[in-house]
Every structure is written in structure tokens, then in C-alpha cells.
Design a protein around this nucleic acid. Sequence first.
DNA 1: CTAAATGCAAAATCTTTGCAGCCTC
DNA 2: GAGGCTGCAAAGATTTTGCATTTAG
Lengths: 133, 133
Amino acid sequence: MAGSRHTAQRQAIQSVLENAEGPLSRAEIFRKAQRLKAGLGQATVYRTLKLLEEQGKVRSVWLERSEVRYESADLGHHHHFRCRLCHRVFDLQAAPQACQLPGNQLLAEAGFLVESHQVTLTGLCPLCCSGRS
Amino acid sequence: MAGSRHTAQRQAIQSVLENAEGPLSRAEIFRKAQRLKAGLGQATVYRTLKLLEEQGKVRSVWLERSEVRYESADLGHHHHFRCRLCHRVFDLQAAPQACQLPGNQLLAEAGFLVESHQVTLTGLCPLCCSGRS
DNA sequence: CTAAATGCAAAATCTTTGCAGCCTC
DNA sequence: GAGGCTGCAAAGATTTTGCATTTAG
């Protein structure tokens, strides 16, 4: 990783991710970051997200059909809840020791080395659950 | 669901999914289904997968950056393990009662209705784990 | 027969890349 | 200054769509 310069564009994108309520799509990141840095180009968003992901500063998660979302790696481990109706995505704070997923023991015996995991719940959020249309 | 005719193309695609070892990418489905039905077109695969998913006969899962994979819904609930090196995807059979994910109780109290969930483990499969480079 | 389903190819999207100028370090 | 970064626009991929034709029911 020869150089990694500090530019206004990267600053804007990182800032957007750090202040997000949940993982954001590329389009959302582009829109929000453009408000922080006028003239920001799409290509820069693609390039920067790829870079940040390689540097481990950003994680990508896959919550719905062909849509990648990104989140700051600073957030620590957590799971996601996605509302089937309004499509909003919520971060769920999980107690670290709560992540003893079933089967880990068996997997280890079978020779698998589990390094990380991703859990996504789907259903209805409080708003959609009560105020149903 | 007005009509849903039984055609050789759909039969081929469903057959491929039912006999899969793990979730398949669109390209894999296309390739395999073409062997069962010569002349099958890409567009038909797109249209059929979308239809089957809406009918609940097929599920889609998101295991890596911008790649959707599909699996037959007949397989029942299970989780996935994806190898970081060889990228193979394994189905993990989970005991139903083992899927009491932590936090469900809290979520219910907060007004969330959890309908389904997806768990993906990542790491090294037995082969990549032993024969490490 | 009738209308759903298909294949083809064009259209619409989405993502990556080449390049000249700009801006950190 | 030198080389990484950026925006732009062109090039590449990927996915969807229009339409004439085929085919299940």
C-alpha cells in the first residue's frame, strides 16, 4: 500500500460512513458525500470504497438482491435487521459472547476454520408492524 | 399468480437447483440448465429465477460482493459457509432449535417482528486449511 | 385457439478504466 | 516537484425489455 493520501473526497466518504445509522448503499454514500464535497465523482466513490475495504476500514454486507451496502469497520461486530416493507436496515448490537453460533464445534471437528460471520434478520420493523397499510 | 406454465426451460432450471450441492450463481445455473435444455436463453434464466423467487420456490442469498446465488426453497432452513480462499460455498445443516438467535427476545420487545434470518460463516474449508500455501 | 413463455437483440444500468490535470506530501 | 487522486467520458459488464414466434393448456 504505497501511498494513501488524505483528500477531501476520502474524508467526505469516511465521514458519511462513520455517521451512518446503518449500512449504506453506494448510491446513498454518493449522495451524502456529494453534500460534503461538491463535484465528487461516481468513480471516486467506487475507487475509494474498494480501497477502504482492502484496508479493512470499511466492511461490505449483502442484505438484498444485488445491493451491496457499506459500513465503517469501527462499529465493531453486530448484526442487521432489514424491514421487508420499508427496506430500512437497522444495526443490532450483539453481546460478544452471544455470538457463539450453533455448530461451531462441529465445524471445527470437520476441519473448517471459522474466521467471521454475518447474520441478517428479516421481518417487519416497529413502524411497519404497527401502522400496517 | 395468473398462469404458471410447465415448460422444459423451467423444469431444467428447477432441476438444476434441486440437485445443487450449495447455492449457485446465475452463470452456473445458466450453464448447467443449458445442458438439460439446449438453446436456453439468458433472459429466460433471469425471468424464471425472479418468478420462482416470487413464488417462494427459490431463495436468493448474498455471500460475496455483488454476487447473488440461488437455492431451492425445498432444502429447508440452513446456513452457509464460504471459503475465503477457494470461494466454495457449503450448506450447513442446522438443527432447527439451534436457531434461537440471541436477542430475539429483546427485538420482540422493541416491536420488531422477525420472520426469517440468514447466517453466513466465512473462513477456510478443510482443504484450504490443511494444504495452506 | 389463446395467452403465457421464449429467444434474440437492442436498450437501459451499473461498474471499471484510460487519461490529462490537480493536489498532497 | 513527483506521483498518487480525481473527474470525465468512453469502454465493459450486467440486467431488463420489446417483439415476433413458439407452445402449453
